[in-house]
Write a protein that binds this DNA or RNA. Sequence first.
DNA 1: CGGTAAATTGACCTGGGTCAATAAATGTGG
DNA 2: CCACATTTATTGACCCAGGTCAATTTACCG
Lengths: 244, 244
Amino acid sequence: MSAGCFAERLNDFITLSPNERHALARLEERERQYRRGTTVVRALDLSSELFIVRQGLAMSFVLLDDGSRQILRFLFPGDMFGGNSLVYPDAPESVVALSDCTVCPFERDALGELIVEHPRLAALIMIYNQIERVALTDRLAALGRTPAKARVAAILLEMRNRMRRRDRSVEDSFSLGLTQEEIGDATGLTSVHVNRMLRQLEDEGMIARQGGRFKILDEARLAKAANFVDRYSNLDLNWLPPAR
Amino acid sequence: MSAGCFAERLNDFITLSPNERHALARLEERERQYRRGTTVVRALDLSSELFIVRQGLAMSFVLLDDGSRQILRFLFPGDMFGGNSLVYPDAPESVVALSDCTVCPFERDALGELIVEHPRLAALIMIYNQIERVALTDRLAALGRTPAKARVAAILLEMRNRMRRRDRSVEDSFSLGLTQEEIGDATGLTSVHVNRMLRQLEDEGMIARQGGRFKILDEARLAKAANFVDRYSNLDLNWLPPAR
DNA sequence: CGGTAAATTGACCTGGGTCAATAAATGTGG
DNA sequence: CCACATTTATTGACCCAGGTCAATTTACCG
């Protein structure tokens, strides 16, 4: 029996106690369904909720004045989002479902209780946030200092890896679930240029494509082209306080 | 009597209890001095420490394979950094002193104890991290989707605001403390182009310059050019658990 | 006061954007 | 299952924001 998607995610790091699993399950007692393309959180709307993705793929992004969009993060099952409502009553970012989604909302007060009752979970959430932060800084460096081809290569690898982490059956061939415009909004490029970069990666024999599906033909070379760093190996969590 | 720089920072959000102030003071019992240009944390080195800046200005950054640098964050007194050592034994980013600095290191186990003993401080640290996260996403959107002039304008405003928050005497005229190359490495530009953008902002009457010092002449227009959003107004922290 | 780092500028180049046309792919109602 | 409507994907032609290179000039430092 599962204690929820987020518990499963944290289980990647460390074995949770029954108490902890029960506490985490309470964050996912409610659920909401969203159709593909639907808005889960609208920027500037009032919100005091956080969320955990149970099923599907979503993204968070900001819209700039000129109408352009920057995608900040893709959200997979087990991801927590909306943490900014801990500070900002008006959401600084929007969240939209990229496929049909199930999302579990919980009030930020519930997080307050969790922190008091389960200090080790508080620490694990900090760890989860640190990992997300490093992912963000990796992307910041990519946007600031790497050419288009590297950024496109990187997003392919990142998405494949994240899909595979949830579902071991995902192999080198996978369906990305993003339009080229979305890839562009995540990498700071135009859909046109994303297309050119994909073609180039294909021409160079690193990937193959057939109608929305991608196949990684030469992972080593793709990873090299992407400046890829695997942040999920060699974690060290030995400072955690004891479980309750 | 102070309970430390970090306590002062958190005091911007909420009034701390004497117990909490005492607990935070323990994070700053030791201190280290660094000369301008010195390395505080070297990427890939082993580290299980976090740090609080007591004095001076520092920056964290990553170096890419091709030798280019992306500055991730500027560190002012009261800032906590090195949180990635909670997860990654090998530092993913470097930290260098931009001026002579005093920095207080503490072991990550100390953070574990703090979380157990002072849940409200744990929550406040999460809040602090969320604010940093939103600052990062703002910069991600700037790098991905705004032109050079906006990014340079934004860094001027951000630095001025952060300096002023610590020291009310900082006015529209201030010394940035960064070279144009550093501005470039923070904004994803070349020092040459940073220079051109500064000249343009000057020619358009938004700023004035005299040997390293900047003066903001038309803040409204500069903020407009920068797409600037003030993230420090309208915070809402009413979910915090009680103090101990 | 010489010496090195930082700032400026001009000339020129290119990665990536813009525009526009066409072809595929996906969905939809009947 | 089909015809049509809407998104997406592709490509070519052309443009420009920002990079590169190199030469000066200015500021800072022991």
